[in-house]
């Protein structure tokens, strides 16, 4: 089986491009519908649910892995204010850490990704941290 190259600590600090995402009312409504989230402001599409930044998908050059071998270990979002329909968010994700650790299933690679989103003037709106575990 052909495995992608192992992720190494050389990748720490590597970043995605800055990507502009527009928070669309319809996308909020579709997300709330899938989750069966009954928060009225989310059902209307006015305010994005707290986990909505998961829809902001970006890639970091050199960071590739087999989807079937990755586990989502942990996730955090921190907010200065909620995301609203019509927001234009400048996002970037970077490799905050890569390390190997022995766990129940043998040695695994932990990949920590840090994401941030600002408004167009550069004021922070939210940040996020993803822990991915690669078997």
């Amino acid at each position: 089986m052909d495995h992608p190259a192992a992720l190494s600590s050389d990748l720490i600090g590597r970043e995605s491009e800055v990507v502009l995402f527009e928070v669309e009312r319809g996308a909020i409504r579709k997300f709330a519908d899938a989750v069966q989230d009954q928060t009225p402001a989310c059902v209307r599409g006015d305010i994005a649910p707290p986990t909505f930044p998961t829809t902001f998908r970006m890639t970091i050059p050199g960071v590739t892995f087999d989807l079937a071998r990755v586990l989502h270990g942990a996730q955090e979002y921190r907010y200065e204010r909620p995301l609203r329909a019509g927001d234009r968010v400048r996002c970037r994700v970077r490799v905050a850490n890569v390390y190997r650790r022995k766990g129940r299933l043998g040695e695994m690679t932990f990949l920590i990704l840090a994401m941030d989103g600002t408004d167009e003037s550069g004021s922070p709106i939210f940040s996020g941290t993803t822990t991915a575990i690669l078997r």
Binding site: T39, A41, P49, A74, Q75
Partner: peptide, 9 residues
């Protein structure tokens, strides 16, 4: 929904 500052799981 305006009051959520952090969620970590």
């Amino acid at each position: 929904p305006e009051s959520v500052r952090r969620i970590s799981v």
